[in-house]
Amino acid sequence: MQSLSSSSIDGTLLTLSSVGILLAAFACLGSKLFNRYVAYYGFQSVLLSFAAAVVAYHYDSAELWALAVITLALKGIAIPVATQRLLLHRLDLKRDVALSTGLSTSLIVGALLTAFAYLVIEPADLPHGVVAASVVPLSTAVVLLGGLAMVVRRHTVAQLIGWLITENGVFLGAITLVATFPFIVEAGIFLDLVAATLIMVVFVSGITRRLAEATSSELRGLQG
């Protein structure tokens, strides 16, 4: 099985959608309204499932098609809708005011992290002309941006989405770097993801019932 080359049409589509995924991560990082934040995450996941579909088409692999569909259904539709319904509407969340830095600052830090991702993932490690060489640094950047969102935003809902962005980045790296990852393992990863999201949603609603704003600045009881 030959690797996906970056100059083929499939490779180009994959690269483009991963750039879109990176930009969506930036959009998440720079949006102040919760519903936009969640919507950008959904958009990112849709792009991700498109990327998975491209890889699936290229390798003609039924398992990857299944993954693309699951991604679309779960990450692209179910999780954003559930977050909107269960958290944003019910808790009446509008604007995220619990930021530890300004949005512009976090965008700039995000740009620096993107540069860092490119420095760390040295292209020399990856074979030249293979699409993974351009996508893996992008996906690393998405992972870092998700982490940054978790650091900058102190609201628990925002941290949850930040983690999901990170997960998207890892998934993007996975489908391009190692398209042949065993399906049963991927399915397990998905199950864990869903379970984690459910548990986090339960915690978020629990925390909101106990605390006024559910931001981690209130989560200061345990120290030392």
């Binding site: 750039v19 965008l107 993107t114 540069a115 490119y118 640094p137």
Partner: peptide, 22 residues
């Protein structure tokens, strides 16, 4: 407006960075 321009700057910067590999 600064944010809009910041976004333009950022997009261009990411563009330059992505050229590092491709």
């Amino acid at each position: 407006i600064a944010e809009f321009l910041g976004a333009a700057f950022l997009i261009a910067l990411v563009g330059v960075i992505t050229s590092y590999v491709v």
